[in-house]
Design a protein around this nucleic acid. Structure first.
Lengths: 239, 239, 239, 239
DNA sequence: AATGAATGAGACTTCATTCAT
DNA sequence: GATGAATGAAGTCTCATTCAT
């Protein structure tokens, strides 16, 4: 039944099966929403039998969890890459936010998935799990984002009256909240606001950057221009 | 069985029963999350038998729907009151955002409920229903918020390069997104960010206001001070 | 709410309400099948409230029952009229069967309703009720049909080796069975047999008549021609 | 829990369970009528838990369907056997009809079950399903029954003015209709007609045969004599 | 390691009918 | 006589998960 021979060996096989499950689940979650997807759905989409599946993940939550953390790790890594390419503090933050705009445009399913995670799961999960997540991203340097503000103040691109940690955390929560809400509502936003989702989000970015930058910093373009970015931002799982 | 005689007559009775159901549901939704609450739960919390309940609401969704629209109407109305008390465009917007901060502090359950609605329901509900909602709030003048920006530009309190409609919509989505995310994560945010929820939210407000105000406008206080507000912001359903 | 004043008086009013219920039920039963129709359906179709309805019929079965007996009485009466117009025994029987063919063509809903009655209810109803029915029709002379055979033998139109009672009963059951099955299957028969329902039924009639008639009787037309008959065969209820 | 080890192996076990369900359902349907039987009834009669049952049949309809088609296949096969033993066209048709009489006598429950299927289900089922059924029987040669008429005309046992297809279809519908109505009404017929069910049915057969046979064919006995037939006519599902 | 089978718990909903006014 | 409200009893189906091979 399992065909692709590929890098053989017990361990390799197990990893391949695991991926098949996660890949199937991810697609289903993106399409139908986390709790509309049953284990049976994952079972049939992945071609792996129910009881076999339970040998890889002992609860449905574990699948969600794994997906969330892979997604976060991958996103964090990509974000860091974008940030590193920029020079000033302001430019770095701009790069970070634009990355999120691209994500919203290119991978709305994934963003929606995270929105559901926030709304339905995050609160009930043991803090320790959340912290594990934190660490993963931490390793990617996310937490060090506070430093971006500090740098920006130092290089004169950001206003000087900011509290680095607090500001950065507020920005992150805000932008994530805005992004995920847009992804959740999807085309309903367009019905409601009569604006394309991504235009609204880019306006959000513009406003925040306006609020951050020092008076002497060069002005921001009317609407942050969509940077052309490769469509690929999935965790490398799917090989 | 439970008596409260009160304004008698068929109609009054029916309305009272309806309220019992909605009240019970609201508490349960706030506490456990929309889809962790079953009809049976509502049944026993409200003291009304299952089949009776179905004579008031023929689907679980209808209860959710009713709650959402009552909540929105009430929130809209309160918001308008706060806005009307302020003078300049900037002050009005400030009042609006501070109202949301108060809401987050005083009624986190309700905000969380709306967050779940966004994440799990909004997308699947027929656009027409959403528009009905819109109208309810519209009547409250929510949509006219674009005017706030126009006024602010006119009175010199806001920067002049803003697109009134787009800006206002972006702000609303952003602040709602931030607010609801914080409510959803609840104390998990504090684990994650090591900051009280409301402090983060007020910093968000500050940043946005910084981005909006014209250069000559008076500076904003380090962190918007929590205005003392009555704890009561429930819809006055019970008449 | 009830408008038509018409022949007033308590009794008249009650009768009018009763008819509204029966009329609504009849339409619904014909369209959806007896047990797919709920009391609530009848309630809303008739514009009479549930609890009021129960003042007229204390069980759903009572409605079915009333409809069945009205239908049977009306059908019996019509049939007798047709029979009486014919002269010989053979002609009378022919008229009877052709009446049934017309019924199938013009009122398939009613025939289907009777088919469901046979299949689902008849068996479980107390014999006494069935006998009450019998009597109603009896009065119409149905039972005297055995006489038709006797007459036919006497006038030489029917073969002489028939047992009047047995034969007539067998014919009635057979033709009713064939007619109701065709009505039940509806267009499914056409899918299955690739013949119009009424053609099959008329062939049935032809065969039976062939079997009955004496050798010297005039031959029967290839397929009994559809006699043109008024569409009206409802019990006069609907005023 | 109930053991019967028998031909082991996954497949065999599954098949055995399936049979337990079908057997239980068949008995219940025969006794109480299709829609008076709930899934819970089948559950407890078969000793299989509700949720297990749903792994074998995902809807109640599927059980009905399976039973209908097994029954039809089995009946078709038996009928063919009987037909094949006869020589002339007339004799073959006679054999077929007598088989139906035996069925009515020996297996009234099954006939009644089919009657309910006709009255309540057939009309609502997708034509494609019905056609699948057709094919099953077709393979048994049912459809080729038209040939019986042709043969009968050729060998001089049937009158020559018959349209083979039309006639055969009309006969089949008629006889099935008569048979199933008698089974449905059960002992109520005896109340109504004061004749044993099977006597009425055999008279039906006699009349039809009278109508079919050519003038020179040997005459039919007053009432077709009940051929003694083994009581066993169940589908040999359990193989 | 893989998998077929089993299942407890419970979800949502419908319905005919009765009661009290 | 009319009616609003109430409801017990079922009914169908789903799901995450465990067990035994």
């Amino acid at each position: 039944m399992v065909s692709s021979p590929a890098p053989s060996g017990y361990h390799a096989h197990r990893e391949r099966q695991r991926q098949r499950i996660l890949d199937a689940a991810e697609v289903l979650f993106d399409e139908h929403g986390i709790d509309r997807v049953s284990m049976a759905d994952i079972t049939s989409a992945s071609g792996i039998r129910t009881s076999t599946l339970y040998q890889y993940f002992s609860k449905k939550d574990d699948i969600v969890w794994e997906l969330v953390s892979e997604l976060l790790a991958s996103v964090g890594e990509q974000a860091m890459r974008r940030v590193d390419e920029a020079k000033t503090g302001l430019a770095k933050i701009t790069a970070l936010l634009e990355f999120m705009a691209d994500e919203l445009e290119n991978e709305p399913g994934k963003v929606r998935f995270m929105a559901q995670f926030d709304a339905m799961y995050a609160r009930d999960w043991p803090a320790e799990r959340l912290l594990t997540l934190e660490e993963r991203i931490h390793r990617q340097g996310f937490r060090s984002f506070g430093k971006l503000i500090r740098d920006g103040i130092a290089d004169g691109s950001l206003r000087s009256d900011l509290d680095p940690t607090l500001t950065m955390q507020a920005i992150m929560n805000t932008v994530i909240g805005a992004q995920r809400r847009l992804a959740s509502l999807g085309n309903k936003v367009e019905v409601e606001y009569k604006q394309p989702v991504s235009r609204l989000f880019r306006e959000t970015i513009r406003l925040i950057l306006l609020g951050l930058r020092s008076e002497k910093a060069p002005s921001v373009s009317k609407a942050a221009s969509p940077s052309k970015i490769s469509k690929r931002m999935n965790p490398k799982r799917s090989s």
